[in-house]
Amino acid sequence: MDDKQHRWRPPAKRRTPERLAAYHREAELAREAIDRRDADAAMHHLERAHILGQPWPGAHSWTHWMMLRLGLSVGDWREVAGQVLRLAAGGLFSIAGWLPDGNTGRARVSSIKSMEPPADLVALCGGDKTP
């Protein structure tokens, strides 16, 4: 496996109260955007919630569930199909510690690809930058 695409690290080392609080903020912003029927803003916040929530199986799975629901609401069948697959494995990946850094969780992105997290999330995600 190519280290640039796969990062295996114990999730416990990446679970911090600050990261969890940031995840909850992004999840709440996503819910608010969904309530306003602002799909673009909702997906933006769900992507950020995914990056932050990966170390927690429940949080990780919740973001995929919400991405699936959002895909259904806007008729994005590629997103729906991709999220069905991710829902089946996302929580297990969290438990196993297989967390591709910075991955946004969208169907248009490989589920095993590490990505550069947004600059404001780097420190919360352990300060690691993708090589």
Results as ranks from 00 to 15, higher is better:
D2F: 10
D3I: 07
D3L: 07
D3W: 10
H6L: 13
R7N: 09
W8P: 00
P10E: 10
P11C: 05
A12P: 00
R14K: 04
E18Y: 02
L20C: 04
L20H: 09
A21Q: 06
Y23P: 05
Y23I: 00
Y23H: 06
H24Y: 13
R25E: 15
R25I: 12
R25W: 01
A27S: 10
R31P: 01
R31I: 05
R31G: 02
R31E: 14
A33P: 04
A33L: 04
D35W: 07
R36W: 08
R37E: 14
R37S: 13
R37C: 03
D38G: 06
D40S: 12
A41L: 10
H45Y: 08
L46S: 09
R48G: 07
A49S: 04
H50F: 07
I51G: 02
I51E: 08
L52C: 08
Q54Y: 09
P55F: 00
W56P: 01
W56L: 11
P57N: 06
A59H: 14
W62L: 15
H64M: 07
H64T: 08
W65V: 10
M67W: 01
L72K: 14
S73Q: 13
D76K: 11
D76S: 06
R78W: 13
E79G: 09
V80K: 02
V80T: 09
A81Y: 07
A81N: 04
G82E: 03
V84E: 06
R86D: 06
G90N: 08
G90K: 03
G90S: 15
G90F: 07
L92F: 12
S94V: 05
I95L: 15
W98N: 12
L99F: 03
G102F: 08
T104S: 13
T104N: 15
G105P: 07
R106A: 01
R106T: 11
V109L: 02
V109N: 06
S110G: 15
S111D: 11
K113Q: 11
K113D: 07
M115Q: 13
P117K: 02
P118D: 11
V122Q: 01
A123V: 14
L124P: 05
C125K: 00
G127Y: 01
G127S: 03
G127I: 04
D128F: 05
D128W: 09
K129Y: 01
T130D: 04
P131M: 02
